[in-house]
């Protein structure tokens, strides 16, 4: 199909996060699990999903706050690695994600003689997110427009349409891949965007990957049009 084809409109929504301090803190891995059990789900969200909203540029050693604290402050590298490998995209709900994290910590502690503590490190502070959706007014109808918008938009919009979409819609498809599939009728590009794992990198890396995929598709389509297909 021609990429100048106008499909349905994609409207970009950005977001702004306000962080609320819950006043609960853990000094060791057991307290971390116990508090993880009782904090609101917004807090699980804050320390896993929206971790990426706060670390948009630099890719950290660990992909969530729990793993980072256990690795950097408690220095229990095995537990940190086990918590790192948890991919929030594998869970349909925050409750299921919470259960998995608690289960990993409990299982790890059951094999230890003593509970590792933060020692000289700082305690873990539980916070929670309040996310405000912000319509950007930016609308795209073609892949070219979409590509240009991705290159300019605040990374919180990329977060919203990829990370938030996963929880909001409880499906594997993110907003971008869904629109490209149904609005632009480009299933192969949609599949590639859907396959992107946002938890392995940063929002800027994700922006860069999206741009590369759009550029590849535009180049391929340009060659096809030149060849008269």
């Amino acid at each position: 199909m021609s990429l100048s084809h106008t499909g349905s409109v994609f409207r970009f929504i950005a977001c702004s996060e306000i962080r609320e301090i819950l006043g609960k803190q853990a000094e060791d891995a057991r307290a971390l699990a116990e508090l993880l059990e009782e904090v609101p789900l917004d807090s699980v969200y804050y320390h896993t999903h929206s971790y990426f909203l706060r670390h948009r540029f630099i890719e950290r050693t660990y992909p969530n706050d729990f793993a980072e604290w256990v690795g950097e402050q408690v220095r229990d590298h095995i537990l940190a690695e086990r918590l790192s490998v948890v991919d929030p995209f594998d869970f349909k709900s925050l409750e299921a994600l919470r259960e998995e994290l608690i289960s990993i910590i409990d299982d790890h502690l059951s094999g230890l003689m003593s509970v590792p503590r933060a020692g000289f490190g700082t305690p873990f502070h539980f916070n929670r997110s309040r996310i405000l959706e912000v319509p950007t007014g930016l609308e795209t109808r073609t892949l070219r427009e979409f590509r240009d918008a991705i290159s300019e938009v605040d990374t919180s919009a990329i977060y919203f349409h990829v990370f938030e979409a996963h929880l909001r819609l409880q499906r594997e498809e993110n907003d971008f891949s869904a629109w490209i599939r149904t609005g632009l009728n480009l299933p192969s590009l949609a599949d590639r965007i859907k396959a992107l794992n946002p938890y392995l990198g940063s929002l800027e890396r994700l922006r860069s990957n999206l741009l590369t995929m759009c550029d590849d598709e535009l180049a391929r389509s340009g060659r096809a049009e030149t060849a008269g297909y």
Partner: peptide, 15 residues
């Protein structure tokens, strides 16, 4: 400012 942030401030202020 980072890309898109100034636009985000405009949109937030509209709210």
């Amino acid at each position: 400012a980072p890309k898109g942030t100034v636009e985000l401030v405009y949109r937030l202020s509209e709210l």
